[in-house]
Design a binder for these strands. Structure first.
Lengths: 270, 270
DNA sequence: AACGTTGTTTCGTAATACGAAACGGATGTA
DNA sequence: TACATCCGTTTCGTATTACGAAACAACGTT
């Protein structure tokens, strides 16, 4: 969704900066957090923190346990998040195909959007619900840098050179594992190949022990609007399995979804 | 979760009030909204609206289509919403039981929390995914007044008299259909029965044509922390079916979940 | 090319949010 | 029971912050 968006701190509204920080802090505090601790972490006087929290609380972005008086994230966030998810009808369209893919491959399937220089998980299908088995730590809404995962590389491969340069210049290429591509020219070369072949592989570039294959989804205008992937432990998702079957499966599913969105490929490149 | 929380507008921070309004507006605009329209609706000068939006955008709460320049809700909301959902581990614990219940009854199953005087949908299991069939308009994160739905009445039945009075006094009892209980004394009498019998029925009190049965979930301290329900079209969910089977099913499932949370009933009333 | 429309930026100003300090309520301790 | 401590909440005079009118810029249209 919406490729790169620079947006630099310009004349930021102080209050918004502060409440964003507060919500992040609360997100990291599953058991809640007291005003005292919060104001300390925020380096703000208690009074100020309290005023912000009580306003946030009034609108439902934050809630307070009446007993412990600790603050937590509020249900309004679930509400807005789900409204947004429901607005993204691509997700609705894609879900049955993703489920089918997950069932066929018995691996975890993700759908993501590109937002600025990161990918955002929009959907996650995980069949093996046995808590003992391996599970991916991904979660809908989670963001990771685009250059080090298969879905991200697939989407980056459809940006213009300028967009790419801008992104690299702004955020750089973080090294997440020893396999992460951190050299700009190497990345560009790699993305050309990805674009040509129509899929990307993440060979433990984001996390040790995890390998993925991803393919792009095009809308009716031929724009790459999202990407889907199959991910799993490297010992199951071997390079051979990817080449022999998985890459074909993701690409086929991605194509089905693209078709459903009205995409009719005239030529592979346009 | 956290029963009633008065929280009245006191020394509200203007910025927070405004951005809450903005996010609500954006939530109502699936196709995005221009600065011009937004500032008009907000009765704010363009410049002010723009400053707020660009700050919100910087933190990801809002995003802008670079082409049309329209603004949309941002992915940060999905992120925070899902963090909150994952923090509520009751949801994780309950999900398999809810699924089982939905499969057994072939009807939609919900789990809700009480927040102030409304219930919030925390989970929704809907099996009949055929788009042609009847589907409930509920959505995770959605809120409806507590006094007119089964889950709400179940949770209200565990409040103290003062809490109940306070809630009624603050928000009143909105009449949603001709069956909605809007008389305070009648409601209190009704809730006593609900509490005693351990389940509640919504007999088209929230929406014409929809009937539900709900039962409470208790934590290890015996506190009613959530409620679950079976809902569906009134022609399928007849009063007879409720009495004959559904009420037993919800209560059994609710009990299983309560047990899993460590609840051991010593006596039905405490 | 001139005009209209809409998004973005500027900048002097006044209202807004600030935060130090006082208050209050709860819990622990002598 | 009285005292002490620790937090959360509220107050209030003040300076900073956000305000918003107006200028500017970027497109589209006539």
């Amino acid at each position: 969704m919406f490729p790169i968006q620079k947006k630099e701190p310009n004349n930021l509204v102080q209050t918004i900066k502060r409440i964003s920080l507060i919500l992040d802090m609360l997100g990291q505090s599953p058991q809640g957090i007291s005003i005292r601790d919060l104001s300390e972490k925020m380096k703000l006087p208690k009074g100020t923190t309290h005023r912000l929290l009580s306003s946030l609380s009034y609108f439902g972005y934050v809630r307070q346990d009446p007993k412990t008086r600790n603050y937590f994230l509020g249900f309004k966030l679930i509400e807005l998040g789900n409204i947004l998810l429901s607005q993204i009808d691509l997700r609705k369209e894609a879900e049955p195909f993703l489920r089918e893919l997950a069932e066929k491959t018995k691996e975890t399937v993700h759908m993501v959007f590109l937002d600025r220089n990161e990918i955002v998980y929009i959907d996650k299908i995980e069949l093996n619900h046995n808590p003992s088995g391996l599970r991916m730590a991904s979660r809908v809404g989670l963001r990771i840098p685009a250059h080090c995962c298969a879905v991200g590389k697939v989407l980056l491969s459809h940006l213009t050179e300028e967009e790419l340069n801008q992104m690299i210049h702004e955020k750089g290429l973080l090294k997440r594992t020893e396999n992460t591509i951190t050299n700009p020219t190497e990345l560009k070369k790699h993305l050309k190949i990805v674009r040509a072949q129509g899929f990307a592989i993440d060979d433990e570039e984001n996390e040790r022990g995890i390998r993925c294959v991803a393919a792009p989804i095009y809308d009716e205008k031929g724009k790459a609007v999202a990407a889907i992937s199959i991910s799993g432990p490297a010992f199951r998702i071997t390079k051979k399995v990817i080449q022999d079957s998985l890459k074909k499966e993701v690409m086929e599913t991605a194509n089905k979804i693209s078709h459903r969105l009205g995409y009719r490929q005239k030529g592979r490149f346009l």
